[in-house]
Amino acid sequence: MISFRSNTRLYQTLAAKAYARNIQYRGSHLLHNFASAAFGYLYACIWIGLGRDHSLGDYGTIGMLHYITFTQTSLWVASFTTMGLGIPQSVRTGQIALDLMRPVHLFAHLMAKEWGQIAYQFLYKSIPIYIVMQLALGLTPIDGGRTLPLALTALAGAAYMAICMNYMMGISALWTTESSWLYWGNQALMNLLAGFFIPLEWLPGWLQTVAWASPYPFMLYAPTQFYLGKGDPVLLLGTLAWCAALTLLCMLSTKALRHKVEVQGG
C-alpha cells in the first residue's frame, strides 16, 4: 500500500525542484508576462468600449476593469497549469511505467511537482501581470487589499482543482493520442463557464445552470467575487466539495490507468 503521509519531505523536495527549475528562466518568463498583460489590456479595452454606450450593471466600468484584471492574473494559477501534468509525454516515451513503479502514489507525486510550478507562476507571472495591469488601467487594489486573503484562499482551491482536472486529462492519453484537445477544450470552458470574461450572472439562465453544475465557477468567478468584496464565504464550501469530489475521481482514474498501462519492450 502506497502511503501519502510518510512522504511529506519528498513532496516538498519535488515542489521545490519544480520551482527551482522554472526560476532558471525567470527573465524570459517576465518578458512573457507582457503578452499576457496585453491580452488583459485588450479585454479591458472591450469593456471600456462597452461601458461608453451601456451601463455595466452593479460592476460599472471600473468594477469590470478590476474583474478582468483579477481573472487575467488568476489564469496562471487556476488555468495555465502543465498540460496533463506531463502524463501524455510519459505515456509516449514509456516513462509512465517507471512512474507507476515508484513507491509514491502517481497523483501525489505529480501534484507535488505541479504545486512548485504553480508557486513559481504565482510569484513570477500572476503578481507582475497584476501590477502591470493595475498601472496600465490606473487602478488600485480594492479596499486597500483587505479582500485579498479570502480571494487567495479560494484561488488556492482553484489551483488544486486545476491539478486534479489536468491529472485526469493526462490519464486520457492512454486511450487517445489527441489528449491535448481536452486541455484546449478545458481552456475554452474556463473562458465561458468560469466567468473569465463575463460575470456568470450575465450568462443566459440555462448556461448559468450548466456552469454551476460544474467546478468551473469556483475556479475563477468565486475568487474574483471575493476580490471584489461581493463574495459570500459560503462559496468556499463549494470549492471544498469540488476539491473532495475531484480527488476521488483522480484516485479512481489512477486505478483505471494501472489496468490499462502495458509495456511493450524497451
Binding site: 462597452l50 484537445w181 477544450g185 481552456q187 473562458n191 465561458l192 463575463i198 450575465w202
Partner: peptide, 19 residues
C-alpha cells in the same frame, strides 16, 4: 472538440451582444 472550442469562443461574444 475543435468545433466545441470554437463555439464556446463565439458564445462568449454572442452573450455580450445579447446582453
Amino acid at each position: 472538440l475543435a468545433a466545441i472550442i470554437q463555439l464556446s469562443e463565439f458564445l462568449m461574444i454572442a452573450i455580450v451582444l445579447a446582453k
